[in-house]
Amino acid sequence: MEVRTIKVFTTVDNINLHTQVVDMSMTYGQQFGPTYLDGADVTKIKPHNSHEGKTFYVLPNDDTLRVEAFEYYHTTDPSFLGRYMSALNHTKKWKYPQVNGLTSIKWADNNCYLATALLTLQQIELKFNPPALQDAYYRARAGEAANFCALILAYCNKTVGELGDVRETMSYLFQHANLDSCKRVLNVVCKTCGQQQTTLKGVEAVMYMGTLSYEQFKKGVQIPCTCGKQATKYLVQQESPFVMMSAPPAQYELKHGTFTCASEYTGNYQCGHYKHITSKETLYCIDGALLTKSSEYKGPITDVFYKENSYTTTIK
């Protein structure tokens, strides 16, 4: 009895394709271990004539594949690729409408935090270190965002349907971005203890939790000093293409032309909904596939993004 075979390709990165001759009487799992086709788990399936010449994702289970996976995804987590594939199996079914010149995501599976993050990423200057993220990001900007969303979920250790947080998501993504040249110098002034300067680099240099107003941050924000008295913390120097200011959701007025974009969060910790506000020729609110415009805006804002380049204080 002759062994019926077909020729397929296996890959971990969709760049390096490895030619395989597979036995049609055995499952993919018996031949390769966990195997995925377009995100779908085909591990328990036997090869079919229609699979001839198709590319299958496999887990990096030998040295060659491990090197290829690390170079593309910059992670050695053995569960990463499987999590990416199972997320992709959902995100490829989502709709990605162009809204006001940006790629958004039609609401499904509690994905409003991903839509808000995706919209924000198209408006701030950011370059990702893992080629996987950078490639998928370019495709997302062009309207094909399924891979990018699935990668975000995998890097953030999230599953489809789980509630997510924009600030946490951005923080994970910033860790995989090139923020080497970003720098922030802060000064804390206390009447009792004097003053202390701190220099922050990388992710810490672009994120701040405690106030939404970048102007206020430049002037000074009140913080408790270690001595128990009130101290003032203010920005001395900022070198970065953008800054992200966050605070627990509270009524906040966004003035046209003073910011790049913002995240609105309605609801409580267990259950809520994100919308995205962007400042173009007027203010726009993007909620999944829905767009509304207004000249002014007041609502429960939790993150505001500002364009920056270089700032030095005039406070002496």
Rank of each mutant, 00 (worst) to 15 (best):
H273S: 04
T278S: 12
T199K: 08
V243Y: 03
N100A: 07
A154D: 02
T198Q: 14
T5Q: 08
K293T: 12
I286C: 04
K92H: 10
N61H: 10
F80P: 00
K54S: 12
T27G: 07
Q122W: 01
G220T: 03
P300Y: 09
G272A: 10
P47I: 01
V12M: 11
Y28M: 04
T226S: 14
T232C: 11
Q123H: 04
G101F: 00
Q20P: 02
Q251K: 12
I301N: 02
V188E: 08
Q98F: 09
F217K: 06
C190N: 03
G33N: 00
S294G: 09
Q134R: 11
S246D: 08
K298L: 09
K92L: 13
Y137W: 15
F217Q: 05
F305I: 14
T116G: 08
K201G: 07
C271V: 14
L17F: 15
S263A: 14
H276T: 03
G101I: 00
T19C: 15
T211K: 06
L283Q: 05
H256C: 11
S246L: 00
L114S: 01
L102A: 05
Y311C: 07
L119M: 06
K158N: 05
Y96D: 02
R83V: 01
E162G: 01
K219T: 11
Y284D: 07
H48V: 10
E144G: 05
K158G: 02
N16P: 03
L173V: 09
N111M: 01
M244H: 13
L163R: 14
K280E: 11
K92Y: 05
S279A: 07
F9Q: 13
F217M: 13
L200Y: 09
Y234Q: 07
Q238E: 04
A146M: 03
G82H: 13
A154W: 03
T226R: 14
T55M: 06
D13T: 07
G272S: 08
T282A: 12
I152Q: 03
T199F: 05
L118V: 07
G164W: 04
C227S: 02
A87P: 03
A132F: 00
V21P: 09
A132V: 00
A146E: 05
G39N: 06
S294E: 14
Q230G: 08
V206G: 06
Q251I: 15
L37R: 11
G267V: 15
Y84W: 03
S294D: 08
A136E: 12
V221N: 04
V166D: 03
T169P: 00
I277M: 06
F128M: 02
Y137F: 12
E264P: 03
Q20I: 06
G210L: 07
K307M: 07
K95I: 15
A231M: 08
A115K: 02
V206E: 04
Y73I: 00
C112R: 09
L59Y: 08
K218S: 04
T5N: 09
A117K: 00
A115H: 02
A140N: 04
F174L: 11
E2M: 10
Y113M: 04
L153T: 03
C182A: 09
T19S: 13
C182G: 06
V203T: 10
L283P: 07
I124T: 05
R139D: 10
F56E: 02
G210F: 04
D38I: 09
A154H: 01
E68H: 09
I45V: 09
A262F: 01
D287I: 00
S294M: 15
K93C: 07
T312E: 11
E281D: 15
Y284A: 06
T10A: 09
Y284E: 09
Y269M: 12
E144F: 07
T35S: 07
F148I: 13
D41Y: 03
Y265L: 14
R139A: 14
N157Y: 02
T120M: 15
V99H: 14
D38S: 13
Y96M: 03
Q237G: 08
Y274L: 01
K191L: 06
Y155F: 03
L151V: 00
V189T: 13
N187P: 04
P248F: 07
L290W: 11
G161N: 07
I15D: 00
P300L: 12
Q20F: 09
W107V: 09
G53E: 11
A177K: 04
L179M: 06
L235F: 06
A136K: 01
W107I: 10
A69F: 14
N111V: 00
L65E: 08
Q122E: 03
E125K: 09
Y57T: 12
C271D: 15
P224L: 13
A247G: 08
E52W: 09
S25G: 15
Y208F: 07
P241K: 12
E239T: 13
F56W: 01
K307L: 10
F56P: 00
A146I: 00
N178K: 12
T11E: 01
G194I: 00
Y265I: 09
R83F: 00
A142L: 13
L126S: 03
S50W: 13
L235C: 09
N49H: 14
L37T: 08
E308N: 08
M26F: 03
R184M: 11
G33Q: 01
P241H: 09
K275D: 03
C225Q: 02
I277P: 07
S171M: 12
L179T: 02
A87D: 00
V99Y: 07
Y72S: 11
L173P: 00
K183C: 08
P248D: 10
S263W: 01
E215R: 06
N157P: 00
T55W: 04
Q98G: 04
Y311D: 08
